[in-house]
């Protein structure tokens, strides 16, 4: 990011309640369309909302991400029964951009689905890491006992 950006106000201020957030996002979306059709910044400078859509049908653009995040995230978001559709694409192979489209059943918002996707994927990683550790210890113990006999 350009270094001189830090003086600007954060665009999306913390919202205290669910409703506030939805409204805020609505406003932000309109604002984005008016000011710059291409981009609205979502707090994290690497994620942007793409134009066209509402809070239940949203396209997010991730900078500097690829299939590593995209495919796994797409899968885990699709597992959410509140989600109608989720897909991802890498618009051009020489640009490090990844777009993810989320469509949800109202009143569940696409951003909630995205957040939940991240949380679930982190939890899945934990489970796999634990399973691997358990299995590795069992394997090591087994090897040792075989060595002794």
């Amino acid at each position: 990011m350009a270094p001189n950006k830090s003086t600007e106000e954060p665009v999306a201020a913390p919202a205290s309640s669910q409703e506030d957030e939805t409204m805020e996002e609505d406003v932000a979306l309109q604002e984005a369309d008016a000011a710059n059709p291409a981009i609205y910044n979502l707090g994290d400078s690497r994620i942007q909302l793409l134009p066209g859509g509402d809070e239940f049908n949203t396209s997010f653009e991730f900078q500097k991400e690829d299939h590593t995040l995209g495919n796994a995230l797409r899968y885990i978001i699709m597992k959410n029964p509140e989600v109608d559709f989720c897909g991802y694409s890498i618009p051009h192979p020489s640009e490090a951009l990844m777009n993810i489209r989320i469509q949800t059943f109202p009143p569940y918002t696409a951003q909630e689905a995205l957040n939940k996707g991240f949380e679930d994927l982190i939890a899945l990683c934990d489970v796999v890491a634990d399973t691997f550790t358990t299995e590795r210890n069992a394997f090591a113990a087994n090897q040792e006992s075989q060595m002794q006999t």
Partner: peptide
């Protein structure tokens, strides 16, 4: 383990940044 950790940190950082608009996450 590092691989899983890197993947998790990747997710957590983005989630954390998103959480700035939504305090609980």
């Amino acid at each position: 383990h590092e691989g899983i950790k890197v993947l998790q940190t990747k997710l957590a950082t983005i989630l954390n940044a998103l959480g700035e608009t939504k305090e609980d996450a």
